[in-house]
Design a protein around this nucleic acid. Structure first.
Length: 387
RNA sequence: GGGGGAGUGUCCGAGUGGUUAAAGGAGACGGGCUGUAAACCCGUUGGCUCUGCCUACGCAGGUUCGAAUCCUGCCUCCCCCA
């Protein structure tokens, strides 16, 4: 039987999980995710993967979509108050989160709940919950201490977060709760809340935080260093190839559960890319994505599928000419000033040939049917709807 | 309730009446090198109908030939005391 604590950072209290596991009954394993952004990324999957391991050993996963807590803002690991998403955003994200989570979890053995079910409680009940702790206790956490020390504000709402998350554990009667290491305070706090409500406290297990594609900061959507589980295969492979070599070992360990193979870093990284793409897009998708990658970046060719773009709307005043800044701007969602600078900087190519720095307009015939390229990775096939 | 401080471009952060679209850094983007790694080098980094025009230093007014810089009001935020 595989070791469920593999890769875990904290498994608390000492020895408790082993006891629970030996009791020979299915445990209720809780994970809460707040739908604050549109997509689940690889960072989330580290914990989801662990959850799946529990599941494979017959335990029940309780996945909590934190549609209510998303409105409060988890202070965990934050150096400033989190910007709160709108109700619409939360709703939209909540809808897609579970689908994404099921890329890793077994539907049959997963209970999905939204915490607005029980957190949208009567004021009396809320007071009852608030009565369970003290401000000193809430302020103990390291992230608050740092912020208080640095004079960075702590929103009153944030103070409530651990109480609410803890109450989730009460509501679903969790035996074990998982989370990233940044969740340690919240997870432990949940134990106290459970005791206050007469339940046996959960044990907790924390997993390391995956570093983002920049190799420095934790993976997060807002930092733009993430690989989304819904990213297209090519995109996913490309992003994985761009991670720093030093981050690779961690990716292997946390995402694939294996050690980085010996040998050239480039080889190992390609393998990482293939395996992860396969996982989310099906066997063979990784190889396809790699081919695409090779064509694009190794052979410096053009991708097999390039979106078409109509040049006509960029027609200039002189008959028969197309204004390049306008064309590039609209085609690649850049401002025309940006496009102008790109041309000047030699970053624009037509059928592989760099467009001269002073060329701001070209005859329609010179553009229709050609491939317009900006930088290394953005392409459009041009056509002329007026022709 | 009282006192103090702050709001500048994606972010950090200079600038306290005159080439200031606003130093510097980070980030990002483009080019070179390459393994879309790292390191390094170069360039760009408000918008546009681009040899010029427009918008911009929390908001609204005002003083001035001229303001991010001075004045008035407002808004927001932070800290301390109570």
């Amino acid at each position: 039987m595989p070791d469920l604590t593999r890769n875990a950072v904290d498994v608390l209290p000492e020895g408790r999980l082993a006891e629970q596991l030996s009791a020979d009954r299915p445990l209720r394993i809780k994970l809460g995710i707040d739908p604050t952004t549109a997509d689940i990324h690889l960072g989330h999957t580290v914990v989801l993967e662990k959850l799946s391991e529990f599941q494979r050993q017959g335990h029940t996963v309780v996945l909590i979509i934190g549609d209510f807590t998303a409105r409060v803002g988890d202070p965990s690991g934050r150096s400033s108050t989190r910007p709160l998403p709108s109700a619409e955003e939360i709703e939209a994200n909540a809808a897609t989160y579970q689908e994404q989570a099921f890329k890793l979890l077994d539907r049959e053995r997963t209970e999905v709940r939204r915490n607005s079910e029980w957190l949208r409680m009567e004021p009396d009940a809320l007071l009852g919950l608030l009565a369970q702790t003290t401000v000193a206790r809430l302020l103990e956490r390291d992230d608050f201490q740092k912020r208080l020390g640095a004079g960075v504000p702590v929103a009153a709402l944030e103070l409530l977060y651990p109480l609410l998350q803890g109450y989730d554990s009460v509501a679903v009667e969790a035996d074990v709760e998982l989370g990233g290491t940044d969740q340690k305070f919240n997870l432990l706090f949940g134990r106290d809340i459970q005791v206050a409500y007469g339940q046996t406290p959960q044990s907790i297990l924390t997993m390391p935080i995956l570093v983002g594609t920049d190799g420095v900061q934790k993976m997060s959507k807002s930092l733009g260093n993430y690989v989304g589980v819904t990213d297209a295969p090519e995109e996913m492979f490309g992003k994985l190839m761009s991670i720093p070599d030093e981050a690779m070992a961690q990716y292997y360990r946390l995402l694939l559960g294996s050690e980085q193979p010996a040998g050239p870093a480039n080889e190992a990284k390609r393998k990482l890319g293939r395996r992860i793409v396969d996982r989310f897009h099906g066997e063979g998708a990784g190889a396809g994505a790699e081919e695409h990658f090779n064509r694009l970046f190794v052979d410096r060719g053009v991708p097999d599928e390039i979106p078409a773009w109509d040049i006509d709307p960029a027609a200039g005043e002189e008959p028969g000419t197309i204004l390049l800044p306008q064309l590039i701007g609209s085609g690649f969602e850049l401002s025309s000033s940006e496009a102008r600078r790109l041309i000047k900087g030699g970053g624009v190519k037509l059928d592989g040939e760099t467009v001269g720095p002073d060329i701001l307009a070209l005859p329609r015939e010179a553009l229709a049917g050609k491939v317009l390229q900006v930088g290394k990775r953005r392409f459009l096939t041009l056509f002329d709807s007026a022709a």
